[in-house]
Design a protein around this nucleic acid. Structure first.
Lengths: 113, 113
DNA sequence: CACTATGCTACGTTATTTGTAGCGAGACAA
DNA sequence: TTGTCTCGCTACAAATAACGTAGCATAGTG
């Protein structure tokens, strides 16, 4: 087993062992609030606190963690004047998810029956 | 605070407080292995153990939990002869995510630069 | 019967999330 | 300068979720 002294940064235990981009991506997006953050930024940048409110008051700890990951992945950037916003590739990613909105409605209708 | 005796099924603490379908969906999909499970079932049903192998050996505890949730949501079903498979609406959901594969490749190329 | 595979659960350990509080930096006014 | 905003971000203990290993009951097959 691996020792972890206090000075040692916690190595991410998660993630695809294969390293295939799709798996890395699915792992990143499959963390609490990741999808939601991208979703909430779809209409424009938000400050960290506005984002927090938009995410049902999720704790700042996770939000910062997710924002760091999403920034490192290149999907989100911090602009001093306006807060957190999607990058070009981040917007591309979001567009991949946009049909989800329509799907969610269809899904709900089916569930009612 | 709500008491939770052993006979009481754990009420989900998570999820969108708004109850909007898109939020419920984003929360469900934003749990560990949810996206991955749907992804691994894209080419056909898998038995629980095959699915486990396909998911880098994720623990059966979470897999069962996610499978229960995904079944309850109507995305996955258990077929006695072939294991876990996507339902019709589950396949629709997956198709929403399929462009993600191509995106992941584009993403990787950009990251290399 | 023994053997194998299925779906699923128990349980102790580890990792992640939560909730609350607060820091330091910068902007702006008195 | 002092006060008071807001900003991004962090600390820390408690709660929750996930991990890893082992194993159960059932069903099929030989």
């Amino acid at each position: 087993m691996m020792e972890r002294g206090p000075a040692m940064k916690k190595r991410s235990v998660r993630g695809s062992k294969s390293g295939r981009p799709i798996m890395v991506l699915l792992d990143l997006l499959g963390r609490r609030w990741s999808l939601r953050i991208l979703w909430q930024l779809r209409e424009g940048p938000l400050t960290s606190r506005a984002l927090r409110d938009a995410c049902d008051g999720a704790s700042p700890t996770v939000l910062q963690a997710r924002l760091s990951e999403l920034r490192q992945a290149g999907f989100v950037e911090l602009i001093r004047s306006s807060g957190y916003g999607l990058t070009a590739i981040g917007r591309e990613l979001l567009e991949t998810f946009l049909p989800l909105h329509r799907f969610a409605e269809r899904w709900r209708k089916q569930r009612k029956d």
